[in-house]
Amino acid sequence: MFEPVPPSYWVALSAALFAAGAVGVLTRRSAILVFLSVELMLNAANLSLVAFANRWADAGAAVAMSGQTVVFVVLAIAAAEVAVGLGILVAIFRDRASTDVDVLSEVRS
């Protein structure tokens, strides 16, 4: 029999994912990759929500289930962001055939 992986390991994994996503946002040049990094951060949050729900399992079904339910809310938020974000990306790409965020610096005066 395998021992179950303790929740704290999952939380640590989600922190690592979140950090990787944040680094990606700050260093990547392509808008698509920046956006993918944001998705990584959102999924890190989801993973930690599920892990914490496991941790609160003894506190009663209402407390534990609320964490798992919020995961679905965050999934819906992420999907909506993809729809709007890719729409904006496509509009820009059509105009200039590049998604390099460094090209996006003309607004600065």
Binding site: F35, G85, L89, I92, V101, E106, V107
Partner: peptide, 8 residues
């Protein structure tokens, strides 16, 4: 660019 920046 404004839209892209604000979105990201």
């Amino acid at each position: 660019e404004a839209g892209m920046k604000y979105f990201l």
